[in-house]
Design a protein around this nucleic acid. Structure first.
Lengths: 233, 233
DNA sequence: CTAGTCACTCGCACACTGTACGACAAGCTC
DNA sequence: GAGCTTGTCGTACAGTGTGCGAGTGACTAG
């Protein structure tokens, strides 16, 4: 009579092997710190002390790997239960949670717009979002319109924010000197675009961080105000 | 006495040469039809009957070329003069114009979030937008907050829309069969995500196009409603 | 103990990318 | 003619994703 596997002892510790989780995790590290162009299969493999093509046993293609990484990010986003906060502050919280996830993983905008990406975490996120807006009293027809307008707003704003921060980073300057250089440029073309100059000056008075946060909050607030008038129940 | 140039005849027609405009134009064609991955310097050169490296005399790098292309798209977006329509319908028009430009050039989202891109058309667009909102009666402080929330909303929504369309295209199925396949998938995981199922069904009843347009309009309307309450003057 | 079958690793090779370099040519001004 | 500017392009290099097939360690059946 054969003894079942889980009681039987292993003769020797199992061979150390790569795992999909491990690959995803270190790929995430590379992506977060070096961006999309910094991630190559060879570099990833090297960091795992493995041959480049070994990865392909665990992951079909690089694109699939990126899909896994995207879904990982969706998994980091909170959606509060509606009974805890009400839909409005729930949506606000959701927006902020989504923003901070995107700021932690600034590579996401440049890859997410070319691919399906309907992994389990994305599904769960979408589902929980819909629950929130349903509880908020939107009509059946409006629930996912409301939900997806909030998601799109956050996505767009934070993508733009990430692009701005990227601009600063690439310039190699510090934040302050970058802002002041922008000011100079704005001065130079002031005659052509007087409005832009005012805008830059307005943003300069706050720091870059606060200015971007204010931007995000202002629009989200306005959008939620607009959505509030569409609550019917 | 030397005769001025414009009266002097050319001895021979000038040598045919590449031009930046020409390069930009055919690159735009490739990008629009084959997407970002379809654009390579060699392919672009081949389509111009030129050697690959000849392009580098007219354009410093491929990235710079893409920057030119992005600014070209910004140039296609209308912003109405405020006195023609008022800020609200002006903003609506602007949003639709921006949307259709992005739908014509669906490659834009995947490249715009990694780079500066403050070309002349972008500047002019921003400036005209600010004029519109200023005339709308927003406080000095709110003008560019309002403006950029609209831009971000449109950007985010249409980027997501483009991604959806890309999904359909890549699947190789027709629009209808794709939608019904989505329905099946939704049925399959219905127990886990009942909300998603409802959402998919709602979208299925309209066509894909109308559903996406409705989505866009709904959120933009809500956002503008919210912004309207912030008009002070 | 041997033979066989999985699960997994990895070197090589291929086609492709952006672009630096330097040789070359055509047209213009002296 | 000489010399300069403008422009073209072949070659080469370092890098990419990944298909293929050989190889290896751990396990099981006989």
């Amino acid at each position: 009579m054969k003894e079942p596997i889980w009681t039987r002892e292993r003769k020797a510790p199992p061979r150390e092997t790569l795992s999909r989780e491990q690959i995803v995790k270190t790929a995430m590290g590379i992506l977060d710190s070096e961006g999309v162009t910094g991630l190559s299969m060879r570099k990833l493999a090297a960091r795992l002390d493995a041959g480049a093509t070994s990865l392909y046993w665990h992951v079909p293609t690089k694109d699939d790997l990126v899909d896994l990484l995207i879904d990982e990010v969706w998994g980091e986003i909170d959606v509060p239960e509606p009974e805890l906060a009400g839909w409005r502050s729930g949506a606000l919280l959701f927006g902020h949670s989504m923003r901070s996830a995107l700021l932690r993983h600034p590579w996401l905008p440049e890859v997410m717009y070319t691919r399906p990406s309907l992994g389990p975490n994305a599904m769960s996120l979408g589902s929980r979002g819909l629950v929130l807006f349903e509880a908020g009293g939107f009509s059946d027809h409006d629930i996912d319109l409301a939900m997806s307008s909030v998601m799109s707003y956050v996505l767009g704003t934070v993508s733009a924010e990430v692009a701005t921060r990227e601009m600063v980073r690439k310039s190699g300057r510090s934040e302050e000197t970058w802002v002041s250089e922008m000011m100079e440029q704005a001065q130079a073309v002031a005659s052509e675009y007087p409005e832009m100059q005012k805008s830059v000056r307005r943003r300069t008075s706050l720091g870059l961080d606060s200015s971007l946060t204010e931007n995000f909050v202002f629009g989200l607030d306005a959008l939620l105000d607009g959505l509030a008038t569409r609550v019917t129940k």
